[in-house]
Design a protein around this nucleic acid. Sequence first.
DNA 1: ATGAAAGCGCTAACAG
DNA 2: CTGTTAGCGCTTTCAT
Lengths: 325, 325
Amino acid sequence: MVNIKQIAKQAGVSVTTVSRVLNHHPYVSEDKRLRVQQVIEQNSYTPNSQAISLIRGKTRTVGLILPFSHHPYYHAIIAGVMEEAYQYGYHVLLCQTSYNPDQEREYLHMLSTRQVDGVISCSRVLPWAEFQSYSESGPIVVCEYTEQSNLSAVYTDHYDAFCSGIQYLLDRGYTRIGYCVGRKTSASSQARFRAYQNTLHAAGLEVYSEWIFPDCIHMSDGEQIAKQIAKMDKPPSALIVTGDEAAAGVMLGARQYGLRIPDQLAIIGYDNQPISAGLQLTTIDQNLQEIGRQAFSLFYERSLDPTLTSAKRLIPYTLIERSSV
Amino acid sequence: MVNIKQIAKQAGVSVTTVSRVLNHHPYVSEDKRLRVQQVIEQNSYTPNSQAISLIRGKTRTVGLILPFSHHPYYHAIIAGVMEEAYQYGYHVLLCQTSYNPDQEREYLHMLSTRQVDGVISCSRVLPWAEFQSYSESGPIVVCEYTEQSNLSAVYTDHYDAFCSGIQYLLDRGYTRIGYCVGRKTSASSQARFRAYQNTLHAAGLEVYSEWIFPDCIHMSDGEQIAKQIAKMDKPPSALIVTGDEAAAGVMLGARQYGLRIPDQLAIIGYDNQPISAGLQLTTIDQNLQEIGRQAFSLFYERSLDPTLTSAKRLIPYTLIERSSV
DNA sequence: ATGAAAGCGCTAACAG
DNA sequence: CTGTTAGCGCTTTCAT
């Protein structure tokens, strides 16, 4: 592997001059610049980015932490982050945690070891205090709501979005409303539970805990839930499912188990994934790609100017009406 | 940021000793080891990985090149690569090319700049000769068939898989067989065309070019094709669609445009994605996750032992019978 | 068992 | 405009 020293020698100049040519500095005579460039070409020399990262203290890489890379929800965010990162010449290091706190620590730790300039997290499992402590080593952006002062955040108002989904169902005469979420303990699931309680209470309706289905993430989860509902004595007549993939599962399961949509079961999905368009599924689009883009740009701004304080960005959602309600 | 020198000073030892402790070398007295470890803890010191990469000439990172991160096909491969990479303590850098040759070059170039130890490519657009030239700087694995001697490859026998799909349809009495592919010019599409021609000719059937649909990648593409088919004077009665997402689109479109499945249109998908299970779609599973895993392990072996020559690995496929045929 | 010193490949004062 | 020099933070001979 040829290095800058050898280039300098071959071109008969100092390494500094080579460095200047490399970095497009002014004050290099035209003939030397040409000579150096020629030698660089001849040797197809390229600077070692490890050395540059070491000296500059920057890697132009951001870590993207997610629980698993197997779900369209994360793909949408990945796509948004990648799009923006590419714009600014940054690389994205994929960090899969499987919700394992040790693995999460390990990845956050890359901030301390300067392997990445910052981190974007889609799935914190560590307690906020510990999680936040890593931000001493570089900007961290989370894709969920937080009040932690050192963390930047890009998020959907899940409470509000859920209320509006429920209200949409109420407005259309549905009174037996249920919902499906992913991990019950997540902050967004808790916000949704509050939204559910408050909106139904306000409408003078009762809340049945049997109509709340947790651990509904993949298509197969949705199918199982449809199966359950088909057997219930007192089934919900409408369902909000936080994720189009799972919602699609409910739809397909409903078909299998003889539930007509939307007559017997109305469904609102989440995220406006391609599948929701295909199935004519009404859905709440929380604009995941935009969340990814904004997450990167929040990281980027703070990376350029470390004196910047953390920022919070609320991303608006849209209810997309199709024919599953 | 505290460095090894400061740790050494605080612990009253040399940097060498600290380095030894860090790297679990023998020949460090127990008391010094303890002292050093304490100081490391106190300062929550972590070695700078840029410096280590620089000195070792390795980054423990592999670049994963793909055209876009917006399709379940790539997610499955990503998941496989990530799984294996994690096992060996490697990181994965995501490199999105949008099929742009310049971008592809740029990413391959990271091999020369030592930003990654190797590259796994799911989407080569550069000519083989140029593409292969980058392998001088490190191992490259492609997820497609190639005869290039310096490239490792993990691939499905697309010719064979396609033949068996067509044969499956022929065996069930279908004679008007068509198919959908992604990019028509890709090597796999060409193999499929040959498989199509040869198998149909062997069966004494004619080949209609109108039954070959290119650019069928996303769900919406599939829907459009169903629409076209519904309008055709002489429509195919069976279709192989290389990708379950697109196949799902065809199914859903078929429903919309009044084609019964499988009576009026039989469909075989590809990849055994979750959606195919949901829709009861018969599909050819080319085991994408395994392709990802093997791709990493091929990279890994060559990275450990650079004298190793390139390897080719054929991954078997399976036809999964459900009810769309 | 321990440390001094020489780099890894590059950038950036500083001096000319 | 150009080159000398001192590091960036770490590992690794080579002495001791």
